[in-house]
Structure formats: C-alpha cells, structure tokens
Design a protein around this nucleic acid. Structure first.
Lengths: 224, 224
DNA sequence: TTCTTCTCTGAACGGTCGGTCAGTCTGAAG
DNA sequence: CTTCAGACTGACCGACCGTTCAGAGAAGAA
C-alpha cells in the first residue's frame, strides 16, 4: 500500500529536511538512510529513489544550508542602514542566538571535514566562505564610498573581520570557559572600530590602513 | 609465528603513529582498524589488544597531537626573545609551513566534529583551545609587565589574536582564492600592532578602545 | 474500464568493519 | 631443561548499512 503521492519537489524537501535535522543531532557519519526514512516518515526505498547515492542527499543538505546562509546575508546587506549598522547586523546574526549558531557550525564542521578529502564537497565549502567574505567586503566598500569608513583594502579587512568572527565562534564552541558570545560580539565591534571607523574629527592626518607587507601596516589611530 | 616482541610502550607508539598518518590521509571515519594494522605492520588482533575499543585508539591519537602542539607552544614561549617576537614565532609556526598547518587542521577538524557530540572528545578539544589561549595570554602578560605592550586585558586580546589566527587559517584552507598564508601572517601582525604595541611616543592622550557593553574590557593603555 | 506512468514500499542482498577468540610463539624465571 | 606470562596472529562472527528490486498502489489518459 503506497501512501498518498505528492509532488517530487515536496518529497525531496521533506527528505532533505529530515536529513538536516538528523545530521544536526548525530553528525554526518552517524546518520543512516534508515533514520532519514523514519524521520521523514517515508520508506527507506524512497530515499534512495530520490537520492540514488547517499552523497547526493548530503550535498542537497549542504546546498540548503548555503541557501539559508546566503539569504541571511543578503537581507542584512539590503537593509537600509549605514554600513556600520549592517556589519553589526552580521555580528548579531552570529552572536545573538547561541543555539542557532551552534547548530550551524555543528553541521558546517562536519562538511568541512569532508571537504578536505572529497572533491565533490570542496566546491560547496568554497562557496560558503566566498559568500560570507563577499557580502562583508561589499558592505565595507559601501561604507568607504559613503565616507563612513576609512579608505582601506576592503578585501583584506573583510578577511580579518570574518576571520575573527569565525575564530571566536570556534573558541566559544569548544572552550566555553574562554569566551562568551557577548564578549565575542564586543571584540568584533572593536575590531571594526579600529580598522574602519574614522577617528573623531580632529585636525589629525588621515590614517592609511590597508596592507602592504608588514611594513606600514596598522597605524593605530593616535587620537590627536 | 609471532613476530619479535617489543615493549608495550613501543608498540603502542607505533600503532598510534600509524593511526595518525592514516587519519591525516583519509579522515577519522574512513580509517579502519585493518588499515591501521597494515600501516603499523602488525596484526589486526594486536591493535585491539592494545586498544580494545576503536575510540581509545583515536583518543590516543588526539593526545599525541595535543602533546606536540603544547611542546611547540612551550618552546616558543621559552625562547629568550621579546614578547613581540615570541608572538611572531607563533604566527610563523602557523603560517610558514602550509603543508604542516593543513595536516594539523585536517585532523583537528575531524575531532572537533566528534567533540560536538561525544562527551569523551569534548575534554580534549577544550584542552587544545585552552592551551593555545593560555600561552598567548602569558606572552601578552609578559609583554605588558616588561613595558613592551600597552596595558590591556590580556585574556581578551589573546582571544582576539587566536581567533583571527584560526579564522584566517580556515579561510585559507577552504577558499584558497581569498587568502594566502603570507597575507594571513601580515594581518595577524597588524592586529597585534594595533592592539598591543605602544604608539610612537607623542604627547598624545589616552585612547579608549573597546567599548561599553561588558564595561571594563580592553582599555588600551594611556601611553603617557 | 483498462492501460500507462510514476510514486512508493519493504524485504533482501552483499560488502564492510569492529571486535572476539583459540591458539602460537618468545623470552625470562625457576 | 620446563614452565609460565603475555605479546602476537589471523580466521571468524555478527551487526550494520547502502543499495537493489519486484511489485503494489494511485492518478491521469484513452
């Protein structure tokens, strides 16, 4: 007795959702097709029907995550706010909701582990990093154009900001005693202030931030 | 025909080494006891003889990694150099040898994935993060004591520095186009200059960095 | 109704892998 | 020498899991 039919789209979505929920709980490798079938309230055979190889199913899960991430970043980027506020929005997305962040990174780390060995996954994780970096870089560029930020190398600063964001999340995830999310948020804020914010109007000289080798580097804004 | 005997210590070491090499290549989950046995030139039974459960073997591998990490950090910390140079040493350890760093993180990420779900691994990853943070924090504290650095909250700055280090490594690992190790190195250098180095002697006023939120936080030193 | 097409089922298969075990070999002690 | 402890072997077992497959049920077309 076959159950009520439904569109291919719907079924695929249900199965991917189920898989995501299980990966969240048990990890990539400990999630079996049996479990996915049960969670999706579907027969084991149907899972294979839509996703002939287990890998295909998990790539679909990864794609779902990427899409959600991109949409989050997009809506922060599109907000009608000063660049500084939009960066803050990104920080909040990451640091305000511990449970959500934990879940996201739980899955992400699983896939990163895969990516280091399997070609198929590599492309996807690249997209993840490039997506995040791109949106942050755009926001910074906007801020520079509007005169809100100093004239810096937007790409490099984006790397630094994103780097610290992720680095701090990892510390929080794996050594709760060391960092709390609130602290992490404050640290990122501070980094942005240091690197981007134009120092309070003085007659002081412009501060060239940016890059080059380690020579010029960071001239911390000597207030006055 | 049993092979030449050897001390328990030696054998265990050989097996753990073999396991580490395989995990490096194939990952935690794709490494079987058979493979370990072959790589260690030992029978499958002997692997189980020394490590009755597969988990025990892999925890031993993790412990080996931690010990190596700690010893690296220790020797950088013990170097007779100014604090600033010792931090630089840490950066070089991470960014100068791409292959080594790649290998280290390949295994680390595997274990981090485990840690999010299995209690047994959690303790170990905590040690990893706390070890790194501690050595960096000590170095910073030394620098402050010696008057080399500004008077900052050593713990918070350590978190920021380590955070950026790891964050940049991840970007390099998973999106090679975005960051190169040389750039990453320069960025960390720059962060340290910004946060710690005492600005060139001016009669300038104190610079209030950090922010309100967690109140005290990082108060960059009033460099007289 | 009958036919066709596509969704869906669940038993079964085959391969893999962690763990076991009966027994062998070695070196040292007595 | 004999004895004994314990290092060591490799065949084997049982569980698990991805994948296959023959066929059932449902919906639309004719």
């Amino acid at each position: 007795m076959a159950r009520a039919r439904s569109t291919e789209e719907t079924r695929r979505g249900e199965i991917v959702d189920a898989a995501l929920r299980l990966i969240l709980k048990n990890g990539f490798h400990n999630t079996t097709l049996d479990q996915v079938a049960v969670q999706a309230k579907v027969s084991k055979g149907l899972v294979s029907y839509y996703f002939p190889k287990k890998d295909e199913l998990f790539l679909a899960v990864l794609q779902l995550m990427i899409e959600r991430l991109r949409s989050d970043l997009e809506s922060a980027y599109r907000a009608h706010l000063p660049a500084r506020e939009r960066l803050r929005l990104n920080f909040r997305n990451l640091f305000d909701n511990g449970k959500r962040t934990r879940q996201y990174y739980t899955v992400l780390i699983d896939f990163l582990g895969q990516a280091l060995r399997e070609r198929a996954v590599q492309g996807y994780t690249e997209v993840i990093y490039e997506t995040v970096l791109t949106y942050v870089e755009w926001t910074i560029t906007d801020g520079i154009r509007s005169g809100e930020f100093q004239e810096v190398d937007a790409h490099k600063v984006a790397c630094m900001v994103v780097g610290m964001m992720e680095g701090l999340v990892l510390q929080w995830l794996f050594s709760r005693d060391s960092v709390e999310l609130g602290d992490a948020y404050a640290m990122c804020e501070r980094l942005v202030d240091d690197l981007l914010t134009i120092p309070p109007t003085n007659g002081s000289a412009a501060v060239q931030v940016g890059d080059a080798a380690p020579s010029d580097t960071v001239v911390s804004a000597a207030a006055r």
